[in-house]
Design a protein around this nucleic acid. Sequence first.
RNA 1: GGUCCCGUCGUCCAGAGGCCUAGGACGCCGGCCUUUCAAGCCGGAAACGCCGGUUCGAAUCCGGUCGGGACUGCCA
Length: 477
Amino acid sequence: MTVRLRVAPSPTGHLHVGTARAALFNWLYARHTGGSFILRIDDTDRERSTVEFEEDILDSLRWLGLDWDEGVGVGGPHGDYRQSSRYDRYREAASSLVESGAAYYDNRTAEELEALRQRAVAEKLHPAHYIRRPEETWADGAIRMSVPQEEAVVFEDLVRGRVSFEARDIDDFVILRSDGTPTYHLASTVDDVDYGITHVARGEDLLPSTPKHIVLTRALGAAPEPEYAHLPLLFGTDGKKLSKRHGATSLSLYRDEGYLPDAVFNYLSLLGWSIDGDRTIFSRDEAIASFDLVDVSRNPAVFDPDKLAWLNGEYIRAMDPVDFARSARLHVEGAVGRSLDEGEWARFEAVAPLVQERTRLLPEAGDQVVFLFEDFAEYDPVAWDKVMAKAGVAGILSSARDRLATVDPWEAGTVEATLRGMLEEMGLGAAKGLQPLRVAITGSSVSPPLFESMSALGREKTLQRVDRAIGQLAGTG
RNA sequence: GGUCCCGUCGUCCAGAGGCCUAGGACGCCGGCCUUUCAAGCCGGAAACGCCGGUUCGAAUCCGGUCGGGACUGCCA
């Protein structure tokens, strides 16, 4: 039997990193086993579902590199893979369950039901305890499953092992609302059955729903039942379920902030799984080769932005320099505030490899090189105090200015030779003699290597900025 | 309150009775390198929640306890 897995996001928001991680594990297992990965859209919440969010989800999944074999956008033998297209099927399933006696119409009010729950709680029972088929019967209203009370629901979870729920703790849950729309439990289970899903790997928050889905699956007459794998939840750094409070939780945000899909893929795969005891960085193919749902960890994982950033830096440094320059261009132009012409682009390309080594997130690349294209408004005050407001600096700057004026040709190598000659003659250490120039050129005490920066800046601009610093020094006395 | 899940360095993982004086990674601290910052290299601090039991031997098995989490809707 060939393995079939699915991911079923609701288009009520951007693709959440938790959903992305679940999708990733499903995808890895499908690829590992040679099975199929299916994308279904659970859009039964018509109020909150939008086509924009659906597109964002598809885009994010593609960006992450998770391709699907069937589903929304690519088709397959089961229609368009949107739950909103299958209401007739869900209604039909619900009525046939009523006919078989597995489910019943329920017209009790919310107040009546709430009273039953409170009574159970008062008696220290599970709140579901008294939500059962009442004496009175109806021929319309909401439809509830009648959960068989004879035996416990027991299943072997691929990551958690044997899990069991007493039947008395499972309430007779609603499968079809009184307005004729299906609940999540019905729609999801019917789809899993109809689409021949063999493995349901999803977040642990759905573990308490699983016995309901098993009851439903059995009542639907489906065999074999799918295998379940409940993945550990993702937490924020405060140990609570990852949510918007924790900052960036949507995948598209990471894409927009200049993270690399391979790095995000690699990082996400590390949350609740590991390829072995000592490898942290590995390729998709390596992950596919080793991945198995039974190896997934049982405990929740804290999403650590620092480690993601570090990993992203590793991937950036491993990039082909040409690719890096191309990927960074957008961010450089963003930082400069306009697009670069051909000559400017060439200047960036000249220093790009040096910038690449110093970049963890693509936008940082832009910040490092704006000085090449725009005159900075003011010197960084801390840098100025620490480097420029010192005796002898004016002398260093004017001496450097004179020598730089005659450098020929204007290249990093010749600039370096000239400046090093100056340091030697003046008896200056490199740090002491060069930092003032760095601040003069870039406005900051932190920048890409100085000689290459000057070379890329050009002689004219370089001299101009040294003059500006000399002037500023004279002005402040 | 109830049901279920979970419990190894601050964090993510390795560890499936002796290979553990518990390993790797991020982060942190110190050093080297060095024109700044990174990167790189070297070194360091840092954990089996607790109590019992099984066993010649337990991070690994069992029980209890404590702690954390999820769920508890005609949301998904």
